[in-house]
Design a protein around this nucleic acid. Sequence first.
DNA 1: CGGCGACTTGATACGTCTCAAACTATGTGG
DNA 2: CCACATAGTTTGAGACGTATCAAGTCGCCG
Lengths: 251, 251
Amino acid sequence: MSTSLLASLLIRKLERFGPWSSDERQRIHDAIDSTIRLPAHAHLVQEGETPDGIHLVLEGFACGYKLLPDGRRQIVSYSVPGDLCDLRTTLLPQMDCSIGTISHAVVGRLSRERLTELTLHSPRMARAFWQTTLVEQAIAREWLINVGQRTAFSRAAHLLCEMFLRLRAVGLVKDNSCEFPLTQTEIADTLALSTVHVNRTLMELRRSGLITLRDKHLTIHHLPALEAAAGFDPGYLHLEATHDDDVIPDA
Amino acid sequence: MSTSLLASLLIRKLERFGPWSSDERQRIHDAIDSTIRLPAHAHLVQEGETPDGIHLVLEGFACGYKLLPDGRRQIVSYSVPGDLCDLRTTLLPQMDCSIGTISHAVVGRLSRERLTELTLHSPRMARAFWQTTLVEQAIAREWLINVGQRTAFSRAAHLLCEMFLRLRAVGLVKDNSCEFPLTQTEIADTLALSTVHVNRTLMELRRSGLITLRDKHLTIHHLPALEAAAGFDPGYLHLEATHDDDVIPDA
DNA sequence: CGGCGACTTGATACGTCTCAAACTATGTGG
DNA sequence: CCACATAGTTTGAGACGTATCAAGTCGCCG
């Protein structure tokens, strides 16, 4: 995995709401430090830490989560390829949640210092980073609605819709299918349900013919139907402005 | 309510993580359009709209919420004096939730265009706005944990702790007491509980001697005890960097 | 072959919801 | 100034969605 692919994924994401100059692109490129290969269920950042680098997911999934004193865990975000998973440490003194991998993952590392310089010298880049934070915020709020208001069935359907669209936006969906490496325990910690109930709910989704989910692979047979079951409205993902006609260029 | 007070509240908030130049302060001051007085339960912004101004709460409470097709409502954020309630429209094409007032409120209006100019010309200001978004995001994630993992009792206690600390940070707490204009229905829509259960939970909080809540006025008798009951850790509010030794200057 | 993580299934318990109704405070028009 | 409407709070009883506990299956890897 070269830094070129890393750069193109990131630039693609940041340019979502407006193109950059070649100088700005070069600067992002230069901020890239290295690439790390991680196994599944590895720790990337611990709650309370102030890491000296920002991480960009290139392959695989990462998640943000918080552990409660009684051992319960709430997953508060997922990062798929193209997502920055701990951007907030650029500006906030310390992480307010931990970051870990879900599947085997490849992660790019960006120097926090250089990123800070960038945002201080290019307001357009500062705005682009701010924008990705705003989208993350919109997703967090939709999750709150999901956990707060929807039944287990809709909740699960909603998560599947969101992940499917996010993966599609980065070219990782083929024939209505995508990799989906979450265990039922991880889905449970995301949706605030017990593992047992997630299992029953997934079986119900399967029985209803909306999805196939096995061997870490998700197929959505009829997206509009699943969206209807979920009460899903994709607006909050703010994907419509994406240049999703582009194909991710080769490294 | 003069624009001076508006400006000082806002600047105080934005300078939380680093002071500005007098030129930057002046520019913010100049971005202020007007001041609006609103009754309780008024609409400020509707989901899907792209308003041409950003709103800053000066007095009273506002909230962000989303309505579901079946009539359920989830409140996803509160704005107290000093908070910008719809900053995201500076960068995102449309609001992904509605904004309304809780109590009678006074709201300042900032020109969206001017604000955009500001963030394009001063990277430091762009970063300051980004930072407030990051804090909002941290709050949204804590709410997700609250609704997802905690019992009704802890959940309610947690909300009270958060609002109390946020109000204290802007000088609105006196003798462990503050205005707390939320109805039980609004608390229910925040915590994803039924009104009936919120009522019973509040009674339990009162019976346990932790709080007094009546006539839209909250007193926390022993904050550490309430925090313990809530499993509350104030880190996510990122208030520690606040210049909370300052008093809000008069208009 | 044994062990372990993930998934599946059944039975029971419990937290919270829903429905229903009474009560209180506030404001309004006659 | 009273009669009434309205919004908010309080209380009771029963229903329901989901949690918990328990146990068993399957596949994979050492």
